[in-house]
Design a protein around this nucleic acid. Sequence first.
DNA 1: ATCTTTGCAAACGGTTTGCATTGCG
DNA 2: CGCAATGCAAACCGTTTGCAAAGAT
Lengths: 141, 141
Amino acid sequence: MAIENQELRKAGLKVTLPRVKIYQILEQADAGEHFSAEDIYKLLMNSGEDVGLATVYRVLTQFEAAGLVSRHHFEGGHSVFELARDDQHDHVVCVKCGKVAEFSDAELTRRQHEIAESLGFTVTDRTLYLYGVCTAGCEDK
Amino acid sequence: MAIENQELRKAGLKVTLPRVKIYQILEQADAGEHFSAEDIYKLLMNSGEDVGLATVYRVLTQFEAAGLVSRHHFEGGHSVFELARDDQHDHVVCVKCGKVAEFSDAELTRRQHEIAESLGFTVTDRTLYLYGVCTAGCEDK
DNA sequence: ATCTTTGCAAACGGTTTGCATTGCG
DNA sequence: CGCAATGCAAACCGTTTGCAAAGAT
């Protein structure tokens, strides 16, 4: 039995075609690649899978609740998803072409904790987005 | 003539009642206070001003374009606005009581620019939220 | 067989837009 | 007076939900 089926069962979710297919899409993506619900929907359609957009949303929400994926709200109103990883990473978003890059920086992390502590605050999660323009290979769309 | 009228003129906007009123609301707010379009709309209604919600959005968008206000997209889909300040400030959000604190740290800012630059990226805006629990005075709601 | 999950279409909430009217300059 | 700005209502877009049909165990 494939790995994804076990992950689904572990999360208390029945193994159904839409769930498996969506999990596979996320799993086979390059690390750092983000998908909107629409992206995934289109990929499914192109593969000839007959899955409704509503189901994509439902499945992604279930995956999020199960800790399998994390959801990010980018500026612009729509959400993107990626398979959950345990490293803290941050995002750079190009406002022109929508490209997203990731980075992780120990100095930033350390400093953030220092600041939070000095404010009487215990950090459990963070969200850092840098918005701007990528100077090379930016294809406006 | 009041300050706000000059600001409006400078931005190439005619001095109209909705624009002046909205500017005043933002101006009289405590630093760090954020308003949704709806918030501002309600404040106007309560003051007996007959301004349409669509106009509030239009004015806020114009103000943003003119650099008078900055818009933040919080998780949850709606936008909030505040009068533009030139300091880059970040947010600490308590996941228990919903309290929001702000801070600004030169070291963080500098490091962020370094990182972005090394990724071939020019930062125009950023969004850093630290989520956690405030250790004192946290009133769960 | 039962209880979950799905697809569809309709509802939703925040935001934007078309158009006739109002009002600044 | 002329053109920009407004109000209203309808359109929009991403997302959620109600419900009857299909599917998993």
